[in-house]
């Protein structure tokens, strides 16, 4: 055996080791400082050395039995891959992309789900309205006592009217209303509406339907006392935004539910993933709208006591939402 000759895999390693170590140093740097921490030249070197190391790994698997080397190269390629293919987003890019393009586009792509979701709620409202005028004890069936807070068929008209026009006196109290609102009933409805849509639409549909029942009962109660117009104004301030948010969250759930029910040519898992792209955006929009509705309920509703202005504010803001959904991101960039 001639000694001076190195075995093939040793020679292979000796020729490339310097590149690997240079790559490792760059990867260390990228991991510590993020992709933005590299200069342009370093980033280019990183990508080049990464491809070389990947080739080395493929070759080493064929020609080397040195376990230490194989493990090193594999982990090096993994780390370099993660550094090279790191997300390149910036915060402003993500936010502006969502508002100007992907958010409204997801809304326009989900028209069917939105209609179904709104339909479920309207159906509930309509049925409750009809039932109330047949027999007003239905009210207690649909509206839980803690939510009604004394507002029911047994309450005086004056009590109901006061509820529409009285409000918290201070800033801190408004904040309390805002926060209580956020954690209250409707936020939960929206979250569940989204999460439950996954289970083939049925629980999500029922939830929206039930929510419609409650609103329908309220509306019928007030209409019965000739307070219908005032209630409409009171509800409009935040309700236009809030009920839309619930409908949108429900529509996000329906998109997922459709994917489970009718996956088409894809597997159910893949269909869910595809639908999830839009559904997540609908959920984000719903969250945003619920926040806006919370602010409106906590601050605006009790500051404005004129029903006309309430209507103008509520539906004006509704029109703004609609304009955003309908118009933004139409141009293909």
């Amino acid at each position: 055996m001639t000694d001076a000759v190195q075995i093939k895999s040793t020679r292979f390693r000796a020729q490339r080791q310097a590149d690997w170590q240079a790559l490792e140093a760059l990867v260390d740097k990228a991991e510590a400082r993020g992709p933005a921490g590299l200069t342009l030249e370093e980033a280019q070197t990183l990508a080049r050395l990464y491809r070389k190391a990947a080739t080395s790994l493929a070759t080493a698997r064929e020609i080397s039995l040195d376990r230490g080397l194989l493990l090193y190269l594999e982990s090096l390629v993994e780390r370099a891959f993660l550094a090279v293919y790191a997300p390149q987003e910036t915060l402003s890019g993500v936010v502006s992309g969502f508002f100007s393009r992907s958010g409204p586009r997801a809304m326009r792509a989900s028209l069917m789900a939105l209609l179904l979701s709104a339909g479920a709620m309207l159906l509930g409202g309509f049925i409750a309205w009809m039932l109330y005028f047949q027999d007003n004890t239905w009210y207690h069936t649909f509206v839980p006592a803690d939510l009604a807070a004394g507002r029911g068929p047994g309450a005086t008209t004056q009590y109901l009217r006061d509820g529409l026009f009285d409000g918290p006196e201070s800033f801190v109290a408004s904040l309390a209303v805002f926060a209580a609102y956020l954690f209250s009933h409707n936020t939960r409805v929206a979250l569940f509406g989204f999460a439950l849509g996954v289970f083939a639409c049925v629980p999500g549909f029922l939830l929206l339907f039930y929510n419609g029942l409650m609103i329908g009962s309220f509306a019928a109660l007030y209409a019965d006392r000739d307070l219908g117009y005032e209630l409409f104004g009171w509800l409009s301030v935040h309700g236009v935004t809030e009920l839309s948010a619930i409908i949108i969250a429900g529509a996000g759930g329906f998109r997922m539910g459709f994917a489970v029910l009718f996956p088409g040519a894809l597997s159910r898992r893949d269909a869910l993933r595809v639908a999830g792209r839009d559904a997540v955006k609908l959920a984000m929009i719903a969250v945003l709208m619920l926040l806006a509705a919370g602010l409106l309920e906590g601050f605006a509703r009790q500051l404005i006591t004129s029903t006309e202005i309430r209507l103008a504010v509520g539906w004006g803001i509704g029109a703004l939402w609609l304009a955003w959904f309908a118009l933004a991101g139409r141009r293909t960039a």
């Binding site: 190195q6 075995i7 170590q21 040195d66 230490g68 080397l69 090096l76 993994e78």
Partner: peptide
């Protein structure tokens, strides 16, 4: 599953020396 992601342990890389670098002795054939 929905996001098509998974959580892995961070790979660590340690380059160990090549044991076959030099011939230790030509006594053994």
């Amino acid at each position: 599953i929905l996001a098509h992601t998974l959580v892995v342990s961070e790979p660590r890389s340690v380059l160990l020396s090549d044991l076959a670098e030099t011939e230790p002795a030509d006594r053994f054939v």
